[in-house]
């Protein structure tokens, strides 16, 4: 986080559909100051309906927080994939890990 960056606009590109994860730096009623990609931005909390604390991560879209994110959930997602691999492995036939392919 660049200090003293002040309050700047949410994002320099204008992709309106890009909801980005941001970290809450302070909360003031209906507004939170968040840090994203090294800058600060103000976001509105009135479309969220959840308690927000400093250090929380928020999914922000067009200046409004739409969901609180838990970094741990990324791990859960990976576990979800592994579950599918395990299921597929039980199913037999070909191995779930595509050892013959290189997705890079």
């Amino acid at each position: 986080m660049r200090q003293g960056a002040g309050i700047v606009k949410m994002s320099s590109d204008q992709k309106m559909c890009l909801a980005v994860p941001t970290k809450v730096l302070s909360v003031d009623g209906n507004l939170a100051t968040v840090g994203v990609q090294g800058v600060r931005a103000r976001v509105r909390l009135d479309a969220l309906g959840e308690e927000v604390r400093i250090g929380d991560y928020l999914l922000v879209h067009a200046g409004f927080a739409i969901r609180r994110l838990d970094p741990q959930d990324a791990q859960e997602t990976l576990a979800l994939f592994d579950e599918l691999f395990a299921l597929a492995a039980e199913g037999g036939s070909s191995p779930p890990a595509g050892t013959d392919s290189d997705p890079a």
Partner: peptide, 22 residues
């Protein structure tokens, strides 16, 4: 901080591609 939310694991990517084939 966005890295916390990145899912970039080549092994799992390969496994997913294998599943797609299957």
């Amino acid at each position: 901080m966005d890295d916390l939310f990145r899912l970039r694991d080549p092994a799992r990517a390969r496994a997913l591609v294998g599943l797609l084939r299957r």
